[in-house]
Design a protein around this nucleic acid. Sequence first.
DNA 1: CCGCATCCCTGCTGATACTG
DNA 2: CAGTATCAGCAGGGATGCGG
Lengths: 135, 135
Amino acid sequence: MQQDQDIAAVFVDRWNQAASFEQTGTCPVRDVLDKIGDKWSMLIVMYLAAGPKRFNQLHREVPDISQKMLTQTLRDLQRDGLVSRHVFDTKPPSVEYRLTGLGQSLIVPFGYLIDWANQSIPSIEAARASYDKAA
Amino acid sequence: MQQDQDIAAVFVDRWNQAASFEQTGTCPVRDVLDKIGDKWSMLIVMYLAAGPKRFNQLHREVPDISQKMLTQTLRDLQRDGLVSRHVFDTKPPSVEYRLTGLGQSLIVPFGYLIDWANQSIPSIEAARASYDKAA
DNA sequence: CCGCATCCCTGCTGATACTG
DNA sequence: CAGTATCAGCAGGGATGCGG
């Protein structure tokens, strides 16, 4: 309980913190959360967690992703320093993507979230069913 | 490393799992991730983590949220069983919102994510600056 | 093989105004 | 106080076609 309040305080403080917020117009925590909620970012990170992969390999493995979104998402992840890009000068050329140390470090806290999700899904679906029935 | 691969496997399996996915068209893990990335959901959860609050109290405390989004987000959280709603039959009427046990349990894994974010923000911003400079 | 550019459409969001 | 209803703007993301 007390710890929960501490976490909340840290979070809310950071959120309200005007530092780069007032200037850039975006909150740094919001930034990270957006990535988490992004349709493809975390899925790609999880696929890359198993090891380096090439562009078309990802394109085949990640279900239903378009070429455009794969490119775009990989660029964003690279820009944030979560993924590194390696071009091999063969022909035809091949490009390999892999998680950086920072990218790998994200897997740990993200994993806790996935665990929570998997454990809580039954409760959530039950709550939804109950809520919808009342209407 | 090995553990990372396990987490990835669990996640990807769950993602691809056709159970309610093929029928409802939505993946249960995706559901949870969407809430995390939602503009207001987690912010409200964090504010409620400090204790129960009334509608207008939240409206005042949560920065820049519109009445509409506050109502809508609280409804969604309630439907998912993360937040409970209590109406007091006074006049003027007052409505109190509080985290359920499920809602409180989310704070723990979510807290790890916030911690990671706060620790990693310097690295991320450095990576971005470096990436942008190259262009 | 890898990536960029364009078009287009859907849905989320905010602003505004109105009820019990 | 605690909502509901309606309207308009914008960004995310898919489809398609082209280039190195």
